[in-house]
């Protein structure tokens, strides 16, 4: 079987397997375990110390690419250079902040022979944190009320609209719980300095956190869905351990979301279950989560399915997964020669 498998060259971003990890390394592990193809992995990194760059058993070659803030033209130029050398078949972007650029470039990339399977622009915008409340309202999904603010002045008297505590969120990343106006000010300044404006003020829901990762085919069909309960959460709110669960309600909500939005591509739903057992949708991440390897481990190789869809190959919906499988993350010190760091730092490739 292995002899006749096609070989794909796949570019993957999100190699920052740090305490607030990007999904890249987990995605690559799924691709490496694909049953339907072999692959050569091209890492696409932003910084010289992203651990995935040095994981040579997973990543064959890494190229640095420009930050999204440099614009799509700079990214395109860099990808043209990489494509000349590597002949990539697929790129799987794994950061929220870079997705817009890749979505915008997808047509040009296709003409270069690089395939992607990404959300449509309208879907991408609808799930933005600033639009999520209206998205939920439109599709009958409970989303905690939120207010988008651009200045601290708009945060004054915020307690007229929200009870304490409330959640202060960044446009792309970061969230802080605030118990008083002073904490709102502090979180606003801290998060806006890092991620820009606007800031989202959201009602806090008491409860337990659940996540679902899945895959939509763009026609309203759910091809994969694995719900997970976080068991161990870091101070950055990231799951350091989690367990697959058999929650039909979470899966139904996922199917409803995919059908309503005709979602195209992988995603992660962040859910909060309140004391009454009702789910509230906190966020829709338009990409695979850092814990995607749990989905692979329980029988749904979503990274493989994403690569196949990008190639235009058929993908059968996953119907089962193992319940009660856990992931426990760990940190591991790699010993790296300075020459490797020097090469990626000075030449932008390793």
């Amino acid at each position: 079987m292995t002899k006749n498998r096609p070989k794909l060259t796949i570019g993957v971003t999100g190699l920052n397997a740090i305490d607030s990890p990007g999904p890249g390394v987990a995605v690559i592990r799924g691709l490496r375990e694909a049953e339907s193809f072999d692959c050569r992995i091209i890492g696409l990194s932003y910084e010289s110390l992203e651990p995935g760059i040095y994981m040579h058993h997973l990543v064959d070659k890494t190229y640095q690419i420009p930050y999204p803030s440099a614009g799509t033209e700079a990214l395109m130029q860099r990808l043209q250079y990489i494509q000349q050398k590597e002949k990539m078949d697929v790129i799987i972007p794994n950061f929220d902040a870079e997705l817009f650029s890749f979505m915008r470039l997808s047509g040009t990339l296709r003409s270069m022979g690089i395939n992607t399977f990404l959300p449509e622009n309208e879907q991408f915008e609808a799930r933005q944190k600033v639009n999520l409340y209206n998205f939920g309202k439109e599709h009958g999904i409970s989303v905690p009320p939120a207010k988008v603010i651009y200045t601290l002045g708009e945060a004054q008297n915020i307690d007229k609209d929200f009870d304490w505590p409330l959640v202060v969120k960044g446009k792309y990343y970061d969230a802080s719980l605030a118990y008083n106006p002073e904490q709102v000010r502090s979180a606003f300044n801290k998060i806006s300095a890092k991620w820009g404006l606007p800031i989202i003020i959201q009602k806090f829901i008491h409860g337990s956190e659940y996540n679902v990762t899945g895959l939509g085919d763009g026609q309203g069909n759910t091809l994969a869905a694995v719900p997970m309960r976080k068991q161990y959460i870091t101070d950055k709110g990231k799951a350091w351990g989690g367990i697959s669960i058999a929650d039909e309600k979470a899966i139904e909500l996922t199917r409803h979301f995919v059908k309503a939005s005709r979602w195209r591509g992988p995603f992660e739903l962040e859910l909060m279950m309140d004391k009454e057992g009702q789910y509230h949708l906190l966020e829709i991440n338009p990409r695979m989560p850092a814990w995607i390897y749990l989905a692979v481990g329980v029988g749904q190789n979503i990274p493989e399915a994403v690569a196949r869809l990008a190639m235009g190959w058929p993908v059968k919906p996953f119907e089962h997964y193992e319940v009660g499988k856990m992931f426990v993350r760990y940190s591991w010190d790699m010993i790296v020669d300075i020459s490797e760091f020097e090469t990626i730092s000075t030449q932008g490739e390793l």
Binding site: Y210, M228, R229, Q231, G242, S244, I245, D247, E248, G324
Partner: peptide
């Protein structure tokens, strides 16, 4: 019926993930 109880007293609720 879906609650798993092991011989050594470990109890797992597969719907909520609680143990």
């Amino acid at each position: 019926s879906n609650i798993a109880i092991s011989d050594n007293g470990f109890v797992f609720n597969p719907v909520t993930g609680e143990s």
